[in-house]
């Protein structure tokens, strides 16, 4: 017999239709799960699940296709925007989203993302930035912060040797082609709500046949950062915000580049 309490719990927290009933492989304290859910909620809210195709990357979220209840393609490392381009061009009636980490998008896939954005490909790009390679065990990424320790920069990222963190949202927002580019974070409930709004807008733009949209989501990696999940949420705000300020860098049909 269901108790009243269970009913309340159920109505307060239900699994979105666009997610499968599967336990994810993500580490404790990793925010991929939160971001997956926000994407799924946006797809649900706009009623798009039955005509949505996701494109998974290579990286921790390579198995994202197991967690979304929609059709999925698994791309080679960094090429999700090219797959998204090919698919969406042939099926403009469908909704396409890519989901990529910072090694995938900002390193090996830099060419594909810049050109997809510049052509104004009408898919939604979710860019998860946790400043490190997660799946391979914590190597330096183009987004790794100065002096941040990783297994391939064990004494900290030396900017003289490897440059500064690449700011993807700022970089892409220098392009003229109309785009929606916003950087959000999911380290606190307040930020999660803002991120949800941005992700939903990115899908809405596609429904409206408007433009290429990219949402950069700052994410945690306590396992490879070598700190606790709680410390990781603080690290996002204390350290990542300095290099990756939150905000909307470009709006659809926004003539001005911020």
């Amino acid at each position: 017999m269901k108790t009243e309490e269970q009913d309340i719990q159920r109505s307060a927290f239900v699994r979105p239709d666009s997610m499968t009933d599967v336990v994810t492989h993500y580490c404790p304290g990793c925010t991929h799960g939160v971001i997956h859910r926000l994407v799924a909620e946006a797809i649900d809210d706009l009623g798009l699940r039955e005509r949505t195709v996701g494109v998974a990357p290579v990286g921790c979220s390579v198995l994202a296709y197991n967690y979304f209840n929609c059709d999925f393609l698994e791309a080679p490392h960094g090429r999700a925007p090219a797959l998204g381009t090919g698919f969406k061009r042939l099926r403009p009636d469908m909704i396409v989203f890519t989901y990529q980490g910072d090694g995938d998008l900002a390193s090996i896939g830099m060419g594909e993302i810049i050109h997809a954005a510049n052509r104004g490909e009408k898919f939604t790009a979710i860019f998860v930035n946790n400043a490190i390679y997660g799946m391979t065990g914590g190597q330096m990424a183009p987004t790794t912060l100065p002096m941040q320790i990783t297994t391939t920069c064990p004494t900290g990222r030396d900017m003289n040797e490897t440059g500064h963190p690449i700011k993807i949202s700022e970089l892409l927002s220098t392009l003229t082609t109309p785009s929606y580019i916003e950087r959000v974070s999911v380290h606190s409930p307040q930020h999660i709500l803002k991120a949800k709004k941005a992700i939903r807008q990115a899908f809405q733009n596609q429904v409206d046949d408007k433009c290429f949209s990219l949402i950069e989501v700052l994410s945690t990696c306590p396992t490879n950062w070598g700190i606790t999940p709680t410390e990781a949420t603080s690290w996002v705000e204390d350290q990542m915000f300095k290099f990756f300020p939150l905000g909307c860098f470009k709006r659809p049909d926004d003539g001005k580049v911020k």
Partner: peptide
């Protein structure tokens, strides 16, 4: 496309 790497992957997406 911007490269043959991208073009190959565009037809991957398109073939799907």
């Amino acid at each position: 496309g911007e490269s043959e790497v991208a073009v190959g992957n565009m037809i991957f997406g398109a073939a799907a």
